[in-house]
Design a protein around this nucleic acid. Structure first.
Length: 270
DNA sequence: AAATTCTCCTGAAGGC
DNA sequence: TGCCTTCAGGAGAATT
């Protein structure tokens, strides 16, 4: 369940090993992920040089002269850098090799994706309709307030909608709503501008903190047990159903919103 | 058009 | 101990 900070940490971890490197071979062991991995991926990439690596939402984009490799970790996906020959295990679906190292993609639940586009990646169907990045100035309280007018969807689902803003997953949505004191089930259209300002502030703070914490684990990134992001962050509500609220001591409540577990404090979140 | 539900998949956890 | 059931979840697709 990588959230945006985990993806950002992953990007920063692999970039130094892969930037400007030439692909020597691509091995696809299990092409069936969320969508099939292109069957000509090895031919497409072998001999080509990675010119840049970017993140958009939770997608990692590898820029080549002739196109872009799009990687998504889904919820159980992970990549790591191998510097010596390591036998693949059960869920090691893809290896992307350079002269010096291998990028290995592992994904037990196979919700991830490895795709290719030879056009502008921003125009790709998966990326074309994404909302602003949460850590940019475009993402503001006023923006959320304006976009939410007359919406009846819950505010939690609203901030998790990638067309509204990208990178706010289930864990950090719950945390941000708690920090901002907003009840997750409120109708998005009934949340006022001041509350959205607080919510945006909370989202940015939480994401930035998680990225910062993730950065502290970068030195471990080569190891298979590197644990970036939320493993290092103290969560206040997510996964704490029934435990005391850190503010008021009230037992935290639990409900489901859009098929997703939601924990909140009925005292502190109105 | 907007909101809700379904779907992919496997490992972990719980029940008996 | 072990088998069976249930659940978790990112996000696009399908449905209401």
């Amino acid at each position: 369940m990588p959230e945006l900070p985990e993806v950002e940490t992953t990007l920063r971890g692999i970039e130094p090993h892969l930037l400007h490197k030439r692909i020597t071979q691509v091995i696809v062991r299990h092409p069936r992920l969320r969508w099939p991995i292109p069957n000509n991926l090895n031919a497409l990439l072998t001999g080509q040089t990675i010119q840049a690596i970017h993140r958009r939402a939770k997608y990692i984009l590898f820029t080549f002269k002739h196109g872009t490799l799009i990687l998504h970790l889904g919820m159980s996906g992970r990549v790591r850098i191998l510097q010596e020959n390591t036998p693949p295990e059960k869920h090691d679906h893809v290896d992307i090799q350079t002269a010096n190292c291998t990028l290995r993609f592992t994904d037990p639940r196979r919700f991830g994706a490895v795709l290719w586009t030879d056009e502008d990646p921003a125009a790709h169907p998966l990326l074309a309709h994404l909302g602003p990045e949460p850590l940019t100035h475009d993402f503001s309280g006023q923006y959320l307030w304006e976009r939410s007018r007359h919406k009846t969807v819950t505010v939690k689902s609203f901030i998790m909608d990638s067309k509204v803003v990208v990178g706010v997953g289930n864990i950090y949505a719950a945390e941000a709503l708690f920090l901002a004191g907003v009840h997750p089930k409120r109708a998005a259209g009934k949340v006022n501008e001041a509350e959205y300002v607080a919510l945006v502030k909370a989202i940015k703070k939480i994401l930035q903190n998680a990225i910062k914490q993730g950065g502290t684990t970068l030195k471990d990134f080569l190891k298979s047990d590197g644990k970036p992001g939320y493993f290092r962050v103290k969560l206040k509500v997510y996964g704490r159903d029934g435990e005391p609220c850190v503010n008021c001591g009230e037992a935290l409540s639990h409900l489901r919103i859009g098929q997703r577990a939601t924990v909140f404090c009925k005292n502190c979140q109105q």
